[in-house]
Nucleic acid binder design. Structure first.
Lengths: 111, 111
DNA sequence: CGTGTAAGGAATTCTGACACG
DNA sequence: CGTGTAAGGAATTCTGACACG
């Protein structure tokens, strides 16, 4: 995804009522999932919660899993696992790129 | 831009208070620019205005022009001109692509 | 023309709590 | 554990209008 677009996807500007409409979850449920650390909305000066499109996607994932009877603790575990996986993949890519660069450097020096 | 991302950029989900914070415009100004047809927010069941990130970008353009003393009527004209330009460029691309395809077809038939 | 403001009403959001299971 | 609900207060949003220039 274009880095410019990420700023939109991650920008926390949507109020809880709209999130409720978009996800089909009740306000109570949305607030509860925050209490269980599954999401962390931004709070404006007044204390009103503001969500991003990413938060909404996360909530829809949560809704699916809850329907399957998965508990919030378990959902949190899964989310953290996926986070780690993404990080290690990113790390792998970085190391591969570094390897490429090193090889290039040696070749350049060899000639 | 990725078509998937457009759905976020154009999704009208942001309330006027947040738009005001993001653009620095007053509620009065934002509503007035709507009256002058410069933007058209979505209205939910209750009648509350909802804006997209695209609307916000448009509003920031408007703010710049207003600062330069450009009147809303003139801004509207400019916006419509740009819209037409985009459309004719799109049209040109479409016709060029069609030309490419026709050429390919003739070549294929020729062999 | 573009923007401010006071007015009155209706819907939103927040928190802490009790309830049920 | 996950969710519903009533409670009270504070801030939001809406419209139509008068004001100024």
């Amino acid at each position: 995804m274009n880095p410019q677009d990420r700023t939109y996807k991650d920008k926390k500007v949507i109020s809880i009522g709209t999130v409720s409409e978009l996800t089909g979850l009740t306000l109570r449920q949305i607030r509860y999932y925050e209490e269980r650390k599954l999401i962390s909305p931004y709070r404006n000066e007044r204390g009103t919660r503001k969500y991003s499109f990413t938060d909404i996607e996360t909530l829809m994932d949560i809704a699916d899993k809850r329907e399957d009877g998965v508990q919030t603790t378990e959902i949190l575990r899964e989310m953290r696992l996926k986070e780690k996986k993404r990080e290690s993949e990113k790390d792998l890519k970085k190391r591969m790129l570094q390897g490429q660069l090193n090889a290039q450097f040696k070749l350049g020096r060899g000639n």
